[in-house]
Nucleic acid binder design. Structure first.
Lengths: 218, 218
DNA sequence: CGTGCTTTTGAATAGTATCAAGGCCGGTGG
DNA sequence: CCACCGGCCTTGATACTATTCAAAAGCACG
């Protein structure tokens, strides 16, 4: 997003002033109430954006991956209202607020591309809101598994390589581990997935998508 | 948004090329699958953005009001994936795609302000997603009533002036009219609201907000 | 081969949606 | 002016879905 839309001179400035930070899997990038000093760009890896409820349970709202930005100060917010942490080994760039503002002011196409990114994310989020309101648990869990599959793919053994995957699915779908476990059992009977130890293998992605077909416009 | 951030010359061009369209209450601005020819800016009034599910039931995802824009082509989308219709008598400006693109390219601060708008809406939507996942019906309905109150206020009789308000609340909260009706009854006993014919009067906004206090960071 | 943690499954419970009936209100026409 | 009618609103009973609690089984690690 940044490389395509900024002038070479500005790219050099960014290169000089950016902080390149490596994260291991499952490390916090920032937490609720932390002060906003700048913005994060993902070079490699994936980050989960999640909120925490009164009772302490998480809600994963989206993933950000290569080329995406997150943790941008929405308005005059001085502190974060959500959390971000790495899902796998990642390299993340940090850019300070004033440099970011300079970039926006001097690279019109950069602003436009960030705007388009937010616009698309907003649309996805609106659709996701509808899904959370209308889907039953079976469908929400299907949706969560599908999201994970699209975001992370599978390892060479065709397994979804996400640590504590049941918990992650529950945090996406807005339910608890027990329901996820039950649903996985059902899906195994239906031949959609297969359990291999704690890992799960997606045997029939098409069947999974079919469960969701009413909710996504082809 | 547009007036503050565009140069006088461009404002004149916009003035010449814009289409100013009056809408009566409850009129469709555009519907699912309609082609995207441009973008809408609200001069006066409020518009509801809603999606429709497989079973045909609506989900109102947000309201847009004075100064806000909606119906912007997210990426290469040629058709809309959602619906917009007026909640009250409104005046809405339509601007064609190519003019909008020219505005973005030539008025950096305009792009930035639209970006900030989307960024804020995205954040609100993420929070709303969490709420839909974690709130019980009582809380979702409280939230919906609060949204309506903040968006539309009350008329001179302190009534929430929204036609078919129970249906609207249900479509925001993701439930049905019966649940809304029950909850309104309960709220009347608790002294939070009062029924006056089909209209409802918000007697104690603070008590309503207290129900929601766990979900919004002060 | 324990030990502690995760996962699975069952049973009880709570919460919500659905179905159905009756009540209220406003508008219309006699 | 009043009675009726249709649409919206309310309430109750019931069915269903999802959560919670609890216990047993599986797995990974020392």
């Amino acid at each position: 997003m940044i490389k395509k839309n900024c002038s070479p001179a500005w790219l050099e400035t960014v290169d000089q002033k950016k902080y390149q930070i490596p994260f291991k899997a499952n490390q916090s990038v920032f937490s609720l109430f932390a002060p906003v000093f700048g913005v994060y760009f993902i070079q490699t890896g994936t980050v989960k954006i999640f909120l925490t409820g009164a009772n302490g349970n998480k809600q994963i709202v989206r993933f950000a991956s290569q080329g995406h930005l997150f943790g941008h100060r929405g308005s005059k917010n001085e502190t974060y209202g959500f959390n971000a942490s790495s899902m796998n080994d990642s390299v993340i760039c940090f850019i300070e607020n004033h440099l970011l503002n300079d970039l926006f002011e001097n690279n019109p196409m950069f602003s436009v591309s960030v705007m388009m990114y937010y616009s698309q994310e907003l649309r996805k989020m609106e659709n996701r809101l509808k899904n959370m309101a209308q889907m039953c648990i079976r469908e929400k869990i299907s949706d969560a598994i599908n999201m994970l599959w699209e975001s992370f793919g599978t390892n060479k053994n065709h397994e979804l390589e996400v640590p504590r995957i049941r918990e992650v699915i529950a945090d996406i779908a807005g339910t608890n581990i027990e329901q996820v476990s039950r649903q996985i059992s059902d899906f195994e009977v239906e031949g959609i997935i297969q359990r291999r130890g704690k890992k799960i293998v997606l045997k029939d992605p098409e069947k999974l998508k079919k469960i969701l077909s009413d909710y996504y416009i082809s």
